[in-house]
């Protein structure tokens, strides 16, 4: 699946690190379960969750810059005209309903 710029996407609300397995996740906790939109496709990179444990067979994943309204990420904070971006791998993104 690939996402075009402007597509609304939701970050998987998944917490592998809470399952007691030693993992390295590059998806910040504060964007999980949140909806933003694709700014751009950055390119294809090895999945850091594999690279972090020294695996040479890390699958390549599309990496997107995703932009969020900051007010959605930290409700209750004064976030007028503030956005934030995170670079997220495709396996963490789902098309938003």
């Amino acid at each position: 699946m690939s996402f075009a710029p402007g597509t609304r996407v939701t970050v998987r609300n998944d917490w592998p690190e809470a399952k007691g397995v030693k993992v390295h996740i590059r998806t910040p906790h504060f964007v999980r379960g949140k909806t933003g939109r694709i700014e751009t496709l950055i390119g294809e990179f090895g999945d850091p969750e594999f690279l972090a444990i020294g695996r040479k067979d890390a699958p390549k994943r599309a990496l997107y810059m995703v932009v969020f309204d900051r007010a959605d990420l930290f409700p209750g904070t004064n976030a007028h005209n503030e956005t934030m971006t995170a670079d997220l791998y495709e396996n963490w993104l789902e098309a938003a309903p």
Partner: peptide
């Protein structure tokens, strides 16, 4: 200015 969008860029990956 309030009218300027502040965009925080979190370098979470390979950029």
């Amino acid at each position: 200015p309030e009218g300027t969008e502040i965009r925080v860029v979190d370098s979470t990956a390979d950029m």
